[in-house]
Amino acid sequence: MCVIATAETGSMPTIDQLTRMSETNPDGAGIAWHDGNGLHRVRHSDNGKTLAFITEHWNELKATPCLIHFRLATHGAVNTENTHPFRYTLANGEHGYIAHNGIAQKHTNGRYASDSRNAILAWQTGQTDLTDGTQGKFAKIDQTGRIEWLTPPQTIEGAEDKPIQVSNT
């Protein structure tokens, strides 16, 4: 099962936590963050590239709200296209990036080979509700840098004993 981690400004997972997330979920990793000027995303099917980016930009990322995802491929190939977080746009104009943890059973068949991408497409077009937890856990970061979990996360201590939220431990 994948893992999602979110960190508000001033907080980040530890390098050890990120390494363990990567080792347990080796099929792609991505990060989305808002630096005060805009929303950005880096994602790779090679977790090492994302981890290298995070460590090289640690202080900059720690100063921003972040959404981090490590993938364990259950549906769809191991490639950047299936690596979270995914772009979304809602009818009200909100846009940003969203990540999924779990298997979206109702969305294993659809436009994409990825159940996550199919569930997110159905959500952004108003065809499904992702807040009840039956399709896994979802977290997003919008164009203003606001992090929101559509399903309740767990809170654990991250770097410098500051809280981070995770989909699972």
Rank of each mutant, 00 (worst) to 15 (best):
R146L: 15
H34V: 04
R117C: 01
G48E: 07
S167M: 11
P26Y: 00
I147M: 08
A91G: 10
T80Y: 01
G145R: 06
I164S: 01
Y88N: 06
A99T: 00
I68G: 00
A159N: 11
H44V: 00
D129A: 10
I103S: 07
W58D: 03
D35H: 14
F53H: 15
A73S: 15
W149I: 05
I54H: 01
T125L: 09
H44R: 15
A7Q: 02
M21D: 09
I156S: 06
V42H: 05
A91Q: 12
H100T: 07
I31E: 03
H107D: 06
K162Q: 14
Q165A: 15
D161C: 14
H75T: 12
G93H: 07
E148L: 04
I164R: 01
D132H: 12
G30C: 01
W123Q: 10
A113T: 14
P85W: 04
I98P: 03
M21P: 01
D161V: 04
Q154E: 15
M12G: 08
G102L: 00
P152K: 15
L150N: 08
A77W: 05
T14K: 03
A29Y: 00
K49T: 12
T55S: 12
E81Q: 14
T169S: 11
T24V: 10
A113Y: 05
I15L: 11
E148S: 11
Y97F: 14
L67G: 09
N101M: 06
I15W: 10
K140T: 09
N101P: 05
R43G: 03
S167W: 02
T24S: 11
A91E: 13
L130D: 03
L18Q: 02
F53W: 05
Q17K: 11
P85Y: 05
T19C: 09
E56K: 15
Q105A: 13
L130Y: 02
E94S: 15
G10S: 08
G48L: 14
T80E: 11
T6M: 02
L150I: 05
S114N: 04
G158Q: 08
D129L: 10
P26L: 01
H34E: 04
W123Y: 09
Y112E: 15
P153E: 02
F70V: 00
R87M: 09
W58Q: 06
E157H: 12
M21I: 10
H40V: 02
H107I: 03
